[in-house]
Design a protein around this nucleic acid. Structure first.
Lengths: 190, 190, 190, 190
DNA sequence: GATGAATGAGTGTTCATTCAT
DNA sequence: CATGAATGAACACTCATTCAT
């Protein structure tokens, strides 16, 4: 028997991202994604149970990668603010260098498929950031607000800033990134 | 010749919003929207050129309404901060009381249809807010950053906070709203 | 608007019967039936809710027609035996002249779709025959057995006799029909 | 070369019967049957030439078994009527204890695959019963009619009576069986 | 001998849109 | 002005079968 091809598995992930980026979530079909990956639509079904599985898996993979990247260069004995800044910069860079991932993730999150994600697994991925927030609150460095609020004012704006469709005038420069983080930090710092 | 029935026109808008809310952007079809509006699919085509026209028009109508609501209770001789707060609260309330509009708008904005909106008309709608931002900058009350950045840190977070799918733990109370605005204002104030 | 075409409705019934006869129940597909009827597969769905609806409706139509034919030339003051004979002959003739209907009905009845038929409606159609059986039992002319048993020994054999695939040597002649009815009658008469 | 695994061969027969019983002839697929048998679809093709071969072989196996069971406890010097009764009871019991075989056989017989059975082999299996019929006719104990007619009035009704889908009110009891055989015998006896 | 991967052709069904009325 | 009928094209998915290992 032929061995299951991890290259094809990966190719299908990439194809899903690419197709959704190019023609949008709503117009993306299993056959278009399969064609993009260079396999038959039927073959796709040996790697994924169905369309939902393909899309949810792709989303989880993106989030997984993001959550890993977000914690890069973080050291527990760095000051809280520096930790936040590093995470924010990591997030910003991830969103900039993987525009396609962000586009996919946003479209996915605003679709009914979003309800199919495993919340437990999801929250486990972002647990380190949650811990960081809680630490900041305990140390009276950041405001004592619901973590969802922190997310909304610190991380979500990154998605907006790095989205050229939404921020048509904003040009990404080192200076702008620094200035923008200042807003994020001012929002949450005590 | 009778004038085209504005009731049906309106019914189709409402139906589009409702259907997209209930089954998602991708599953929404012209015939389902027509059925929801109580008209034949063919009739829809006497009010809208095609599906794209229906969706884009609905989106613009929502944004139009939002931009009108956003400037409610604003007086030019109110202090800048109070203006911002009122706009922010207006926006928050609009997003809360019209969850269906927000859901539609988010799905629309994250779809390729978004590229079909008339940018000139769009920016004209939000011109008053732009003017407010510029005034705040000139008066050295808010930071001198790109208006897109202001939007990203002040207004977009509202979309997140009012979206129960994204903020599962955040419960909307008067207290929480006040606390959240504090973050928004701290982010941008000089 | 175009008016719903009863000819097409009828054509789809006939096409379903024909296709099932020619290639069998299992191989019959919606598109093949539509093609046979001379319409697009999509059009089929304006006349029937789905494949199941098409097949069940066709089956019910056949049974309806059969149940009507079965009671032809029956008069309440004919002797019981003559009534039975007439019904039996009617049934035999129906099965012979509408071989295609019988083939469809047999394949349908041996498929899982059979469970979708409305039993109430079904039993109403064959109520006159049930009444005849009960009358014969009351009058001590036929054996007092479960009506299902009467059906199994009187009417079901007709399906076998008229099926050339199952009765390869049996040739249908007036004489054979008379002789066969004798067996049916001997089975049930007291 | 190892001999082909007869266990797997047998498992595939059983799986075919089971799957057809559970989901119907039309929905039964080679891979589902293979999965049920615990082998790969590819393996199935080392035991059977193709789907048709699998189904036809399974059918023949069932008929083979039935024809063997039918002649159990038969002795050439038993009276004709007792022979018939024993065969009939055997058949009845086979159909009752192997409902799954009967369901498979009925669906198969009403499908186009039925035309693929080897008629010579088939008739050889049921030759003993044919001989019994001919003997009864010669001895002027049963009516001189086409053997197909005997089959239609004596044996096929068993399939009906033992099919709970067709005989919803008939409950199988020793008494009912005896009464039913009476009908069968009355039908054919001179 | 045994297997899961692979696929072209097909499944039932819905789509956006047009057409005749 | 309004409509349901009509459809080619597409949808997600499964099929029987073959192939490389």
């Amino acid at each position: 028997m032929r061995i299951k091809d991890t290259e094809k598995h990966e190719a299908l992930f990439q194809a899903a991202v690419k197709v959704v980026n190019e023609i949008g979530f709503a117009s993306s079909s299993v056959s278009k994604i399969a064609r993009e990956a260079g396999v038959s639509p039927a073959t796709l079904y040996t790697y994924f149970a169905n369309k939902e599985d393909l899309l949810v898996s792709t989303y989880m993979k993106i989030k997984q990668e993001l959550s890993k990247e977000a914690m890069k260069k973080i050291d527990d004995d760095m000051p809280i603010r520096d930790c936040f800044k590093q995470v924010w910069i990591n997030y910003f860079e991830f969103a900039t260098t993987h525009r396609d991932y962000s586009v996919f993730a946003e479209q996915f999150a605003n679709s009914p498929y979003n309800e199919k994600v495993d919340l437990v697994q999801f929250e486990k991925m972002f647990e380190p950031i949650g811990r960081l927030v809680r630490r900041g609150i305990e140390m009276k460095i950041i405001k004592n607000v619901n973590p969802d609020v922190i997310g909304a004012f610190v991380f979500y704006p990154v998605l907006i800033l790095t989205n050229p469709r939404l921020c048509r005038n904003f040009k990404i420069t080192e200076e702008q990134i620094q200035a923008s983080f200042q807003l994020a930090w001012d929002a949450i710092k005590l």
